[in-house]
Design a protein around this nucleic acid. Sequence first.
DNA 1: ATAGGGTGTCGAAGCGGTTCGACTAGGTAA
DNA 2: TTACCTAGTCGAACCGCTTCGACACCCTAT
Lengths: 339, 339
Amino acid sequence: MATIADVAKHAGVAASTVSYVLSGKRSISADTRERVQQSVRALGYRPNASARALASQRSNVLALVIPLRTGMHVPVMMQFAAAIVTTARRFDHDVLLLTADEGPDGLQRVAQSSLVDALIVMDVELHDERVPVLRELPLPAVLIGYPDRAEGLTCIDLDFVAAGELCVDHLVDQGHSSLALLGTPSAVYERQTGFAQRTLTGFTRATERRGVLGVETPCEHTFEAVLHTVEQLLRDHPDISGLVVQNEPIIGPLLDVLRRLGRRVPEDMSLVAICADDVAERQIPRLSSVTIPAERIGGQAVESLITKLEDGVVPELTLVPPTLTARDSTAPHRDLTTA
Amino acid sequence: MATIADVAKHAGVAASTVSYVLSGKRSISADTRERVQQSVRALGYRPNASARALASQRSNVLALVIPLRTGMHVPVMMQFAAAIVTTARRFDHDVLLLTADEGPDGLQRVAQSSLVDALIVMDVELHDERVPVLRELPLPAVLIGYPDRAEGLTCIDLDFVAAGELCVDHLVDQGHSSLALLGTPSAVYERQTGFAQRTLTGFTRATERRGVLGVETPCEHTFEAVLHTVEQLLRDHPDISGLVVQNEPIIGPLLDVLRRLGRRVPEDMSLVAICADDVAERQIPRLSSVTIPAERIGGQAVESLITKLEDGVVPELTLVPPTLTARDSTAPHRDLTTA
DNA sequence: ATAGGGTGTCGAAGCGGTTCGACTAGGTAA
DNA sequence: TTACCTAGTCGAACCGCTTCGACACCCTAT
């Protein structure tokens, strides 16, 4: 494989000149530049990543830490991952994939061995053991999601509190006055995962503000669990006519359960989901939903990271405002329509 | 950050001695070894990955190429990815994530810049444009799935032909004589993706061998599509009493559609799925299924790659035999039970 | 004419490891 | 005793690139 020395010889210049042509860090005459570029092409030269990293102290690799824990919805994760890889490539970086197995040590390892220049950490919990490690590390990092205290960090997330409120407001605006939040599996709450907690906060805050009933219940991913949870819910609160769902995998089963219980959507029961748009579109009826802007957040995360790598300043906390798309699963409350 | 020179000074030895202690490539006296190891701990030394890669011509990084195309079932992909990362770590390697965006050029790039030592390529199509590139590349590679011709490559996959046959045999053994295969979206077939094609081959071969009716139809992921497909299927072939499903996302909708059409599972319709075990377990009724052994295949892929990196010899094609777990979605055909 | 300031290019010194050859001691075989 | 090994260690070369300082050249202001 061709080295920079080969290119230099081929073009009749010094290796450093080739380097400067490639990096543009010093001015080079048009003539020389052209000659070097031709040699690069002729030899099919690609700089050696390790040598470059060693000399420049930059590996041009970002670590992406995906915990892949129970209860997390995998396709959404992958949307983030895809957006992150794509954006990273735009900035001429690659992405190293880390899973939870190694825990905080994995972060230390890749950071201290200079394998990566910076870190993106997904699925952050309120009290995340990785956060103290991140604070110590000399590398810039961006968190997707955010822990209890964001000081000194860079966090990006959907504003789940606002999302919870938005769902409630949408339903209340349609005349519903008894609402329920079907949340994530309880394991997720117990882990104090931020987004679950915050949606609940928004839901509660908005139901109180609007003076309507708001009950909340976690829900596991099995069909049985959904059936049981919904039956229980409707037994305890027969008046409930609006559901907020933050649990992508149960959407299918939930629609099925409602059908089975004879509750038509949206005539007897309105439904707002917090989920990816394509999932909402795919259901019958198409679901009104607050989307998870994975692409936007993932891209933003990388951009912030690149900024930090260039000593730029980025906000500690970026909350992406939620947007609600009304589709066919929400309708005015019966009492209003029959009145 | 401490360098090998720091450790050497601290331990009162030469840098090369430290290197040999760490790599074990030359014998070192117990005394010296102990002293060096203490210094390593005392200084918190971690070898610099780039320097090591540059000197040893080994980055200890594997590239994982995941195309994330339409119609692919993402959670399964991630199971593979997780298994690959975990296994790679066991062999002291890291994993670089590549998506489809870059196409074959991406492979060239990471290979020629010595960013990675080897490649794992997922979701291989029958006529995959990445395959010729792989053949040219001087790096070892392992494909998950396999293209039309495996000569000179290393491919690992579930034996989907056998899987298709296994499903048919299971159903025919229960007395069913009219079967249908609900396949992947047609886009997947058009791409000539191997696994879809091969399952169909196995299905067809087995139905012919057993002398039963076997019809096949692709199916998109929306509820509507499932409903339409199944209605059409049952209209054209009212006798069908056994279904083989190779399309994880439609499993939920399918069960729902069957219920809606008044076909009880398994009393009126037996169902075998080719899907992850946890998905099969989660349904009502629990599905008889041929599992996708993501963990095993992913792990195997990494092990083969490591073997190749050490100049070992591995088979060109490893087909993992399918296993069928009978659960509650298959039962003997009515005619048999009422007879 | 001369000093001063840009350009454009080069050479050499790292970056932090690995690895090869060589050297020293002590042990063994002839 | 001498010659030869082997085990243990060191020094130096090298991996391929970046970057700094130096230098040569030409141009402009004095």
